[in-house]
Amino acid sequence: MDNGTIDKILDKYPRDPSSLIQVLLEIQSELRWLPKRALEKVSKTLNVPLSRIQHITTFYKAFSLVPKGRHQIHVCTGTACHVRGAGRILEVVEDVTGLKPGLTDQDFKFSLETVNCVGCCALGPVMIVDGEHHGKLAPAKSKDVLKNYE
């Protein structure tokens, strides 16, 4: 973990507690997780106790205190996707990756999460891999999508 990265992010925001969530979002996006060292730095710089940061990182779903894989899989389980069979898609993805939501595989290749609605309900069921949306999925198709990722 490069201290410079964290500093660059912290410089973008006012140095007070209200910037906490925005800063953490950027660190999460950059490093794919929130290492303790990073949180200690943020705590010092923004003047927020580490215990409050702990509260926040466990309250909001966007944050991960463990490293994530190279490829983030988000299977949407919003109501529209649920009604259209997102459960089956999730089953297939769990099968292919060997993961359950919240987990990352041994090689840090894939991390699997469910997400509650990304606003593409017309395309349901939807799966997002590394920010790329894959819609109108049939269970077999979701298998094929994942084959393309190294």
Binding site: T77, T79, A80, C81, H82, N116, C117, G119, C120, C121
Partner: peptide, 12 residues
């Protein structure tokens, strides 16, 4: 913060 699953009016 349009959180209702299945709603995406605000997004549009």
């Amino acid at each position: 913060d349009e959180g209702d699953p299945g709603a995406f009016m605000d997004r549009a």
